[in-house]
């Protein structure tokens, strides 16, 4: 037979231990909340998620040797170099797709970097470019000769014409189909796409794995400076 005072004591101890348990749990929760509140979890810089913008791609088509303009909504970084790489990456992704009209393996990772530099006068003694005679919006593009573009002073550094140096991977060049037309279309679509999205880019040069390479795949000369604007099928470029 348990004495009555022992029952009362047991009851008090049980209530006390439950109350202590609840208090401890509350304290733990409050301590956890304080800890979270104490940490500065606010981002130190804005997240690098670029807003989607309309990008203009000049997409090559092997069946008729044309460049067709395509408008796509893409997340485009504000930095011009990164922007250039993003649009070219998308262009090369289209070429790497299974049903591509201008099939080239590699995709976006084939463009390692795009450097933007102030454009300098080139080929002062060279012939003036042969301008395209485009009567048909699907007309075959015409690759220009060289011309001049001379920026001067600090203002031109900021607003003047730019030379884009596109660094491609060796595997892209090695796996590119060989032929005058297919290589020319790749080069011109890159030049035209750069100019369409970065109008200051007027000249384009190519590197492969950071070094100069004679041709893309046996035909298109990669040692020269290309004029970006001359790759544009003029009738198709609209804002």
């Amino acid at each position: 037979m348990i004495p009555r005072y022992q029952k009362i004591l047991f009851g008090i101890l049980l209530v006390a231990s439950v109350a202590m348990g609840v208090t401890l749990w509350h304290l733990r929760q409050r301590a956890h909340e304080r800890l979270i509140a104490g940490q500065d979890s606010a981002p130190t810089s804005a997240p690098q998620i670029a807003p989607s913008e309309r990008a203009t791609l000049l997409v090559a088509n092997d069946s008729d040797g044309s460049l067709l303009t395509q408008f796509l909504s893409l997340p485009l970084p504000a930095d011009p170099g990164a922007r250039a790489r993003a649009v070219l990456g998308k262009l090369l992704d289209l070429y790497a797709a299974p049903d591509a009209a201008h099939p080239v393996p590699g995709g976006a990772s084939s463009v390692t970097q795009v450097f933007l530099l102030p454009a300098v006068e080139i080929g002062s003694g060279a012939a003036t470019p042969a301008k395209p005679k485009l009567a048909d919006s699907r007309a075959v593009v015409i690759l220009s000769g060289e011309s001049s573009a001379r920026p001067s002073g600090a203002l031109s550094q900021q607003f003047g014409p730019q030379l884009a140096v596109v660094n491609l991977t060796g595997s892209f060049a090695a796996s590119h189909p060989s032929g005058i037309e297919t290589e020319m279309l790749t080069v011109l679509s890159i030049c035209g796409t750069l100019h369409a999205n970065l109008p200051r880019v007027t000249q384009v040069r190519f590197l492969v794995d950071g070094a100069q390479r004679p041709t893309l795949a046996g035909h298109a000369d990669l040692t020269r400076t290309y004029l970006a604007a001359d790759a544009m099928p003029a009738e198709e470029i609209r804002p």
């Binding site: 092997d62 069946s63 040797g65 003694g125 012939a127 003036t128 470019p129 042969a130 015409i142 690759l143 220009s144 000769g145 189909p177 060989s178 032929g179 005058i180 037309e181 297919t182 035909h219």
Partner: peptide, 26 residues
Amino acid sequence: HGSESGSGVHLFVSSLAPAQPVRFPA
């Protein structure tokens, strides 16, 4: 030339601008 890309026959003329003939062209 010959290429597996594209179709038919691709014809190319030099992209040089028409120039006057000179005795010793570059």
